[in-house]
């Protein structure tokens, strides 16, 4: 469970990025955060995993206050994948996936760690890239490597910032299916997405961010959900025959 209590974040120049945001996310669900560009999604997710310190408010992971945990303790509860994956040196995909299990091996991977890395690579379909140099890969392959790194960590909570951004449509669908299967084992996955039809289709719960505030939170089948999306993004959503969704400019 991840619980955010009344957090605000300001830049040193006092620009508010998040305003008194609260949310409580139980395990066993896929929670999707959507919102227009610059609404504070990345900041919210980084704060959730302790990478940013909120100016105000507190975050708990399984009732443990994030602020008092060491990086290692946080890593054994939550795995985070950000949006940038540049690596200056020529490490292999295997090196990078193994680093996801740092809290298990502290840089000295055992056979068990290598098996977990292999399995994670397999579940994302990149086992053939194992020996490749990471910085020669395409952006999509780099993203998959980092998602595999996250999966190999074997923790209860996963926070992924726009994991679908560089992925092709099939890889996107496969990742959402993979996320759903993880959720069924009792894990909590929090992702930010820009693809609203996919979000509506796969999310267990949804929150909508607007100017640093959560303006709507609930389940995607709630009738007020589409209205909230239309209002926040300024678009028109025509829902036709069940799952078919058509979004147009207002």
């Amino acid at each position: 469970m991840i619980e955010i209590k009344n957090i605000s974040i300001e830049t040193p120049r006092r620009i508010k990025i998040l305003h008194e945001t609260s949310m409580q996310l139980a395990n066993g669900q896929l929670h999707v955060v959507i919102g227009p560009n610059g609404s504070g999604k990345t900041t919210l997710l980084k704060t959730m995993v302790g990478l940013l310190q909120p100016t105000q408010g507190r975050i708990f992971c399984d009732t443990l206050p994030i602020k008092s945990l060491t990086p290692k303790a946080i890593a054994s509860h939550m795995s985070y994948v950000g949006s940038e994956h540049s690596n200056p040196f020529s490490y292999t995909v295997e090196d990078i996936i193994l680093w996801g299990r740092w809290h298990h091996h502290q840089g000295h991977p055992t056979y068990k760690d290598r098996v977990a890395a292999k399995n994670a690579a397999q579940s994302l379909g990149i086992e053939h890239l194992f020996a490749r140099t990471f910085n020669t890969l395409s952006l999509g392959e780099q993203k998959k490597t980092h998602l595999a790194k996250s999966l190999s960590s074997d923790v209860q909570h996963y926070v992924w910032d726009e994991p679908l951004a560089p992925l092709d449509i099939r890889a996107s669908l496969e990742l959402m299916v993979l996320a759903r299967s993880l959720v069924r084992t009792g894990r909590l996955i929090v992702v930010s997405l820009h693809d609203i039809p996919l979000a509506l289709r796969y999310a267990d719960s949804l929150s909508i961010l607007e100017n640093g505030k959560i303006t709507w939170q609930g389940i995607p089948s709630d009738p007020s959900c589409l209205l909230a999306i239309q209002k926040v993004f300024g678009v028109t959503i025509n829902e036709r025959q069940g799952s078919q969704i058509n979004i147009t400019q207002t």
Binding site: K46, V49, L51, T70, P71, K72, A73, I74, A75, S76, M78, S79, Y80, G82, E84, H85, S86, N87, P88, F89, Y91, D95, I96, W99, G100, W102, H103, Q106, G107, H108, H146, K149, S153
Partner: peptide, 21 residues
């Protein structure tokens, strides 16, 4: 040495895998 290798991930990623950067 192993920690220095992992630092190549960048500050945020290496912190989030559990390194006290």
């Amino acid at each position: 040495a192993p920690t220095l290798d992992a630092l190549s991930l960048g500050d945020e990623a290496s912190r989030s895998i559990g390194i006290d950067v």
